[in-house]
């Protein structure tokens, strides 16, 4: 298998990139004028949010492909993506309140983007529950794919309706012109998280593939 050295290379890249990112966030990027040091959490917060959004799209992709091809690998792909999406969303939901406490004065507000993230998070937790509480096999995989597709179509509706519901609560900082150093730091963090995402994805897919092979083997030996 050629995939192992690739993963090893990737893990070295992630380690180095993470070190660079941490240094950039804390040493290189200038302190934001209004929010102060706490703004630095944004570099990771936004990167994680982007990773989560990517993951949810990949769940959709894997689900559609599974229903079309019925290949187990697409099912594993969707499952692993959902896990990563939940992990990154959890980080977003954790880092958000840490930033909100000094800035908004409270940990939580029913602010549109925060609320959208929370609802999306619960939808994908339900998706994983469909998987883990179903009898293992083809039917559960089909069910999961159907839920994966419906869930993704729902995301824009959730986003839109919550914006309507709490339009006066919009408290996320609007788009601003960034200092070049801030921009570079942001891009470094995006790159780091993209590498981390790819690495985790590869490792989990490998694990799942091996688990499937092991199960096939043990089934064959039992016969």
């Amino acid at each position: 298998m050629i995939s192992l050295p690739m993963s090893r290379i990737l893990s070295i890249v992630v380690t180095l990139a993470m070190l660079v990112a941490v240094c950039a966030v804390f040493l290189y990027a200038p302190t934001e004028r209004q929010m102060g040091d706490v703004q630095r959490i944004f570099y990771f917060h936004v990167s994680a949010a982007l990773s989560a959004a990517t993951a949810y799209f990949l769940v959709f992709l894997g689900s559609v492909q599974y229903l079309r091809t019925r290949a187990d690998r697409w099912d594993r792909f969707a499952k692993v993506s959902a896990e990563l999406g939940i992990a990154f969303s959890a980080f977003v939901l954790f880092s958000g309140p840490l930033w909100a406490r000094p800035i908004w004065g409270v940990f939580w507000r029913w602010e549109p983007r925060l609320t959208t993230m929370l609802i999306t998070f619960t939808i994908y937790v339900a998706y994983l529950m469909v998987r883990s509480y179903g009898e293992p096999g083809e039917r559960t995989q089909r069910f999961a794919a159907v839920v994966g597709i419906v869930a993704f179509v729902n995301v824009p509706l959730v986003h839109y309706s919550i914006n309507m519901w709490a339009a006066d609560q919009q408290l996320h900082p609007p788009k601003v012109e960034l200092d070049p150093a801030m921009l570079y730091t942001k891009l470094i963090c995006y790159f780091t998280f993209a590498c981390l995402f790819t690495l985790l994805m590869r490792l989990r897919l490998q694990q799942e593939r091996q688990a499937a092979r092991l199960e096939a083997l043990s089934r064959r030996t039992q016969q």
Partner: peptide, 13 residues
């Protein structure tokens, strides 16, 4: 578990 979170947009409206 499936219906409640997915229904949020409709419920809001």
């Amino acid at each position: 578990l499936l219906v409640l979170p997915m229904l949020i947009p409709a419920l809001i409206s």
